[in-house]
Design a binder for these strands. Sequence first.
DNA 1: TTTATATTTTTGTGATCACAATATACTTTC
DNA 2: GAAAGTATATTGTGATCACAAAAATATAAA
Lengths: 274, 274
Amino acid sequence: MDKHSPVTLSPRLRDENQTVTQWVYQSLRRAVMDGDFLPGRQLTIRALAQMLDVSPMPVREALRQLAAENALTILGNRRVMVPQMTAMKFTELCEARIAIECHAAARALPYIDSAQLQALRQQDAAINTAQDSGNLAQINHHNQEFHRLMYSANPHQVSLPLIESLWLQLGPFMRLASNSISEHYLVDRHSEAMQAIERKDAVALQLAIAADIRDGVAFANNPSNYKALSTTQTASSFHSFFLPPWQKSLHEQHSRRIHSPEISSSFSISNKNA
Amino acid sequence: MDKHSPVTLSPRLRDENQTVTQWVYQSLRRAVMDGDFLPGRQLTIRALAQMLDVSPMPVREALRQLAAENALTILGNRRVMVPQMTAMKFTELCEARIAIECHAAARALPYIDSAQLQALRQQDAAINTAQDSGNLAQINHHNQEFHRLMYSANPHQVSLPLIESLWLQLGPFMRLASNSISEHYLVDRHSEAMQAIERKDAVALQLAIAADIRDGVAFANNPSNYKALSTTQTASSFHSFFLPPWQKSLHEQHSRRIHSPEISSSFSISNKNA
DNA sequence: TTTATATTTTTGTGATCACAATATACTTTC
DNA sequence: GAAAGTATATTGTGATCACAAAAATATAAA
């Protein structure tokens, strides 16, 4: 149990014409997504209010908003805490990500024109530079932005909020797992995705997205991270016995982000380890 | 634009040891899900507070919570309104429902034992009796409860909140469309689903769920409802030309809920029109 | 040292208020 | 009569406060 670990909160810069509640909300949301709050951490309104130098009111509303997105859990005693992660829940979250994000990608595909493809390439380049710097949080941000960019090409898209809810729920634990990994470069599934987009191949796009998500979580869903998790809580382990019957050989283990040699094309971005 | 239509709000009965905010939240949530607020309706904190005889504070938090679930939209002028429906958004919501609910059903399947299957049968019976009474809202409730029951058999399930968010977004419009339909009985896909569960056949279960969802919205996604929609707003129509390229012949038209003759089995519940 | 009880402190909740922004109603002007 | 400007009313926002519930601490008993 980690109810009272020290918390550092780096507030986002306060935008013009945005309410205090919105600002608090985004600051807290970012903190959750980046894993600044450890799972099991209990949050008090007054403490956060003091940190952000605002009255308790906006914090109350922001916390309630995040709880509605399943980013935080409201306990029976009406206190708010960062949800605990279990191995089963982790698997469910990842599989839900795959199901929804593949769907969102396929729905977005018809709307992705060359301009948006170009934007995707730029975002992918940003991921590579972030990878050179080794800043895990930044890699994560740019990676999310890549996915967000793709899905929101669909102007009538409705699933991005659901997807972000899943990202929020994974956030606190991914950070925890990341700490035990010095580096985690992945096969460049984004190149595969962008090639599928060029060919307007929905199936290939979905395969690339699914692989990207599995790669992204493979390093976390690993027995070596079980230790990191158990130090804070959670009785269940991360071994593979818990995989449901219909789900076989789920987690490949990749250690470096490289281009699959057979699919590198003219518009793929070069990578330091390629 | 329907910003000021009269609104009747039937508060839920106030439970013991539940906060005022929770009570207000559930009352408003139920109202949205049942379509008591028409799309485009603008909601004011003070008016709702007066209706429910509480201070504006709990209403504020409840509205913000519902907005976080995408049940309500916060406008630029910081006012809250029931989201408008467009044909494209409607399609996206339905397809998202199919993608996520099929996924949730498959993930729940291994956990559904005979006791839970029995509960599903009872819930399906409740749907049939509600159908005899002709109460559309009640049919809707029991139908949702059937789906909820199935998905939450998975003890580590994470997608139900996402699914409910979609239900909330469809609520205001489904009611609107329902009004223009005197009766809409469907092929009893629930029987098909329960048979698939008995056989532990994940693919068949997913097909049944997808068909159930498509049936449930087929009567709404119909040119005859375009009139009902256009009287309140929304320029786009409900014809099928907008279907994305990969989505062909989506909406069958069923008018009565009957058992598919070839699949009726010993444990299916008899239906008044069977 | 451990367990039970009493006291103090902290916390969430919900109401009220002041204020600025927005919407509505009214007046004026062309 | 329609458009533009002004005045009034309404609304969301955020701070403050009182209160009850819960947690933390202190105290007493085994």
